[in-house]
Structures are given as C-alpha cells and as structure tokens.
C-alpha cells in the first residue's frame, strides 16, 4: 500500500536521530510491524532500500520484528490472538473485537556508527 511514504517517514526519523545523537552511519534498522498494521513487509523492504539510497542508511540491514495481533471481545471480555480485523471471538462468537496489540508500526532501534 503506502509503504513508500512510510519508508520516507522512517528516513526522516533516522535523520532527526542522527542530528540529535551524532552518528554518521546506520548499519541496522529495527522496525516493529504489527500483524494488524497496514504494512506489507515485502513492499516495505523494497521501498526501504530505494528510499535509503544516498542517505546515511544506504545499505543498512532492515530487521522487521513482527508482533502478533491481540483482540479483546467487546461482549464477553475474552482476549485472544487474532490475525485479521474481522475474526469472531473464540469464546462467544461475536464480531467486533477491539484490537489491543499488533497494530503498531514503529522504528524501534538503530545500530549506528
């Protein structure tokens, strides 16, 4: 989907950090990507590589840490692992689970020099 602009945002976050924390080279970037977030990992890898060209993160390794989706049933309160937004509660069968984890997309850490 919109991985190109997300990758651009990652670049800006890295460049901001380099100004504040004084580093000139990024070796590894760890991204946390929830299974329920709107990130398609393959597209993100492709966009990351092209966006980081000619920047301090050119050639950096992209490590994607995938987090599981967690939902809470709004009817019975049951908490369960989910992989789509339209799953039914595993206990009572109702739809409309509230997403409580696994929808984040974050720059977690950088390995820099």
């Amino acid at each position: 989907m919109h991985e190109m602009s997300l990758a651009e945002n990652v670049r800006e976050i890295i460049e901001d950090a380099s100004r504040k924390q004084h580093f000139q080279r990024v070796k590894t970037v760890w991204l946390e990507v929830g299974k329920l977030s709107c990130v398609e990992q393959e597209a993100m890898r492709f966009c990351f590589e092209s966006v980081m060209k000619d920047t301090i993160a050119e050639g950096a390794t992209l490590e994607i840490v995938e987090t599981e989706g967690q939902g809470r049933c709004t009817q019975c309160g049951n908490e369960m692992q989910i992989s789509t937004l339209y799953e039914a509660c595993s206990k009572c069968g109702s739809y409309g689970l509230q997403v409580i984890a696994g929808d984040a997309m974050r720059v977690k850490e950088l390995e820099v020099a």
Partner: peptide, 19 residues
Amino acid sequence: ATQGEASRIIKLEQDILAK
C-alpha cells in the same frame, strides 16, 4: 573518523505515522 568506529545501539520507539 567513522571508519572502524565501534557501533552502538540507539533506542527510538518512534511511531512511523507520528509526523
């Protein structure tokens, strides 16, 4: 100056959509 410099880990935990 950066050649051969030891690398370090920086924790960011920043939301990609924050901007």
